[in-house]
Simulated assay, not measured.
Amino acid sequence: MKRFYVLGVLMFIGIIAVFSTMRAQNLELVKSSTKDSTITIELSMPRLNYLKDKTFQDNLNSQIESNVKNFVQQVRDIATQDAAGGVQRVPYEANVTTEVRYQNDEFVSFIVYYYQFTGGAHGITTFDTYNVDLKNCRLIALADIIKQDDEKIIKDSILKSIEEKKEEFFEEDAKQLVTNEDLSKRPFVIEKDGIVFKYNHYEIAPYSTGMPEFKVTWTELGSRPEFIKE
């Protein structure tokens, strides 16, 4: 009897371990690298697993994979062309990295960065943001987490941040863009304490400023989504 009890406990622990592993692997990073005389490629690409809606999961994974492949092919084509034309001096670079900004059992927010160097003073980075409701298998839009009146709060917060460090921005152009832009089209990620709005190189600031981002806290907005845990 004691032996059966021990076996039962071990089986229970094993089941818990399996489910814990599955939860931990809802988002995994698939890494690869390759190099030749014209280009160096380093990839750390996100892949979603174990979602209850496999169609949603596969479609999103395919979309991300397609974006990565197109990016790499674009840089590879430039490298091949420049090498053939005798203008390439050093191997070019195509790097894809993933940054997870918030994750729990029900939700994950992450950024996929695309860095390319094709000669010149420096490379250039672009990005895509993803806010994934793992429980309901859908992408979260800004309208899903803010109220109608929150847009003014968000823009006022961003404008205040620009004003406080105006020497780091194209001040007037930045303020005009933020004031007039459609926030529903602005890339964002979600963190435990707020929403982070992101801007590309040169969009509102010189390269030396980097890619500006502005956090608007849940406290400022007066509420937070249910999937954000304490």
Rank of each mutant, 00 (worst) to 15 (best):
Q176E: 12
I228D: 02
D156L: 06
K198P: 00
Q74D: 14
N59L: 11
R138N: 13
R186A: 04
V68S: 10
E164Y: 03
M1Q: 11
R101N: 14
I154N: 05
K160P: 02
T129E: 07
I145G: 00
L177D: 03
V112E: 05
F127Q: 13
Q103I: 14
F188Y: 09
T209M: 03
Q103F: 07
Y202S: 05
S184W: 00
G210M: 12
A17D: 08
Y50N: 12
D150N: 15
V178L: 06
I140S: 03
H201N: 09
T34N: 12
T129L: 03
F110H: 02
E151V: 15
F214Y: 15
E203G: 03
I124R: 11
L60R: 08
F71Y: 08
M1E: 13
M22G: 02
I162S: 01
V90K: 09
K147C: 04
L177G: 02
S109G: 09
G14A: 13
P225S: 11
E181G: 01
K165H: 10
I154V: 13
M1L: 12
N61G: 10
G8R: 10
D77N: 15
T118C: 05
A174Y: 04
K54I: 14
I195W: 01
V216C: 09
D36R: 05
A84G: 13
I158N: 04
C137A: 15
K185I: 12
I162H: 01
K2P: 01
K160Y: 10
T118P: 02
R224S: 15
R101E: 11
E28M: 14
L7R: 14
I190Y: 01
D150P: 05
P91C: 08
